[in-house]
Structure formats: C-alpha cells, structure tokens
Design a protein around this nucleic acid. Structure first.
Lengths: 212, 212
DNA sequence: CCATAAAATTGAACGTTGTTCAAAAAACGA
DNA sequence: TCGTTTTTTGAACAACGTTCAATTTTATGG
C-alpha cells in the first residue's frame, strides 16, 4: 500500500497548516506576538503537537523565512524589466524599500532577527540537502548581482570592478536604508520628510556611483 | 540641610550601579541573557528594587544605549584626523565596522534592537529636556555629515549634492554592511573571505562615489 | 531621643513564555 | 481483533517581566 507516501503527505499538510497559521499571526500581530501556544490555539491542537512537526520555535521561524523570501523574490522580479541597468538599480531599490516597509515583519525575519539563522546554521552542519532551500535567498541576490554585471558591461562601472564586492556594497546600502527606517534609527529626519529623504538617498547613490 | 541633594546623588549612584552591572552581563553573556533577575542577583538586591530606579526593562536598555553611544563616538573620533575627506570616509568606515564587530552587543542596542527606541519614543513625548541626551547619537552622525560636506567642498561630490541625503546614504551603506555581518546574512561569502570582501566593498564605494 | 512620616527594599504572586515527556488516544498492519 | 506504531495531549518545569502589599530602613521635627 502507498500509505507511507500518504503519511508523508499528511505530515507535510500539517506542517503547512502550522506555517500558514503562524504566518497569519505574524502578519496581524507582529513578530513578538507569535507564540507556540497561540499557533496551537488557532489550529485547535495542543502546544506539544507543534513539537512533533518542528524541532523548536526557531525551526518554525526558519520555515516562515523561506516563505517570506519567496514573496520577496516576487516583489523584486519586476525590476528585471528595466533595460538600463543603472535605472534598474534605482527601480529595484525603490521596490526593495517598498517591500521592506509594507512587510516589516517579513523583513525582520529575513534580515534582522537572529532566530532563523541560528537554526539555519545547525541545518547547514548536518544536511547538505538543505542548502537548495536557500535558493530563494541566493535568487534575489542574483538579480542584484546580474544588474551590477550589466552596469560594468555597459560602462557605468569600470571593467575592473569586483562584482561580488560591488553587489554586497549596494545591497548593504539598500538594506541599511530599510533597516534604519524599520527600526526607527533616523530620528534626525522628521517622519513626514522621511520618504523623500530616502528617495533622495537612492538618487544620490545611483547618480554618484555611475561614471559620469 | 543638604540631605536632599545627597539623596539625589545616592539615587544616581544606585542607577549607576545597576547600569554597570547590566553592562557587565551584557558584555559577557550577550543581550538575550540580560535579565532583571540576573542584574538584581549580581548587585544582591531583590528584582523589585530595579523598578524603583527604572520604569521597566526598556528603560534600562535605553540608558545602556546612551553609554554605548558614548563608546561609539570615542571609536569614531580618530577619523577626524584624516585630512582628505574621501580617505576620511574610508578610514571612518573601517573604524565603524571594527567597532560594530568587536562590540556586537552595543551595536545591537544602538541600531538593531527595538527595545531602546520604544522607550525613547515615550520620553520624546513627555520630556523635551531628554532630547539633549541624544547628542551622543547626533554627535556621531555629525562627524559623518561634516565629512560629506568636506567632500563637496573639495570637489569629490558635485556642488548641488543634497548633504542630508548623501549622509544618510553613506551611513546606510556602512550600517548595512555591519548589520548584515553581525546577523550573518552574508552566507554566500565563506567566513574566511568575509573581511576581505567587506573591505573591498568599502573600497568600491569610496572610489566609485568620488568624481574621477 | 523618640515618634512619626517618608523612602527604600523585599519577596511572594501573577501571567506570560518555550519546552519536555509520560500517558492517553488514534491509526495502522496483520 | 490484537499488538504496534504514530500522533496527540496537557500537566509540569524553569525562566521571564512586572506588580504590590508588607516590611525594613532612613530622615525629620518636637
């Protein structure tokens, strides 16, 4: 009988149910209010059951992180339609910032909070197979890297540019903007002028980085 | 009698004792292990006493944050000795990164964690006097802003540069680098090559930003 | 010096949290 | 149907931030 496959499928469905429920709590109540007990309550199981499907809370958060990266990738994809790579960089930055602000909880999970990476570190040690799951991570990184490549190809950056260094540099810039905004570390700019200053910061970067 | 001043002094000394103890725990055990109870244990008082001197845990963390900003400022000050503003930017970035990596817990507190800003927000509403305390924050920001100004003055950036936007742009870049490293969000770079890539990212920024 | 008022400290208690685990229940295979 | 395995339960544990009535310590004025 194929009941072993069905068992596996049911197991995955239960994992899925837990994750979806956790995600709902996440979106409507924020990271700090996502609790094993609340998840259990919402799916009408007891707290202990969660631990039959996930090793611990970090494990749940890591799984949520994968989902978030999927959304992130979808939000960034449209930037590839912009022909000019420098304009693509500008457009991509805006999309990145919009996503980060509109999905702060996802952004927290993906780039700020410790928890998911703790679990990820463990998994990297014990299972090579798990690496592929992080394609969602590398995928978004690759879009940016390709853009930087094109910038070199079209003469915006010098031919000798270190692609990886430049990619990380630009990504750091955008992530810095996003995380400083989300964590309210730009108190010198009044809230109402913030969006404009952020946009001007992007414009500064784009125009000053390219060879004039 | 001047016993009212002495009372006030003793109160400040107790606050100081709590903060110093919290800072020790912070440095040796990390943020997540700093606990009201552990602080109380270490100074041999009961947990409730902390609440006589601080409103809540966020209040303790905000006070620690001020201390951390003091250290941060001290670590950045030497950059002002570098004449050429573009080289100053490069040197400052290196100092920033070094501080962030060597004092990750401080960096968390100052720029990443939510807690201290929650409290700061409250205080901003009820007491204007409190603002000055954030000079430590603005002080470090000012060093960077001055450098950007000098970059414009010496022709590295165009005269029409929006100083605030440029300052925030560069700060975002450096903070992005620091926080991605600290929170281990650069998995595509193996640990042993990380420092070099980070340095190359700084070099890329500095050299590509300046008018050639 | 002593009684009274004020300030400081205590520690038990409350409601959380993540996590464990023996026991119970449900599903399964023969 | 019966024994085995898988799944679920919910009480229990330790730790957390926080509160607060009760207590101890300190200061004050007659």
């Amino acid at each position: 009988m194929g009941s072993v496959e069905r068992k596996e499928r049911e197991r995955q469905e239960m994992r899925q149910l837990i994750l979806e429920t956790a995600m709902e709590l996440f979106v409507e109540q924020g990271y700090e209010n996502v609790t094993i007990r609340k998840i259990a309550d919402k799916i009408e199981y007891s707290p202990g059951t969660i631990y039959f499907y996930f090793k611990d809370k970090d494990d749940v958060l890591l799984a949520l992180c994968s989902v978030a990266f999927g959304e992130f990738f979808k939000a960034l994809k449209p930037m590839r339609d912009v022909r000019d790579p420098m304009e693509r960089l500008r457009a991509g930055s805006r999309m990145y910032l919009r996503f980060a602000l509109e999905h702060q909880e996802f952004y927290d999970l993906m780039f700020i909070i410790r928890a998911p990476m703790r679990r990820q570190e463990e998994l990297r040690k014990e299972a090579d197979e798990h690496q592929e799951k992080w394609d969602v991570f590398y995928g978004s990184f690759q879009i940016l890297r390709d853009t930087i490549c094109d910038c070199v190809a079209e003469g915006y950056f010098p031919p000798a540019t270190d692609i990886d260094a430049a990619t990380i540099a630009y990504w750091s810039f955008v992530h810095g903007l996003a995380s400083l905004r989300i964590r309210q570390r730009l108190p010198m700019i009044p809230e109402e002028g913030l969006e404009q200053v952020v946009n001007r910061a992007i414009d500064f970067m784009v125009s000053e980085l390219s060879i004039r």
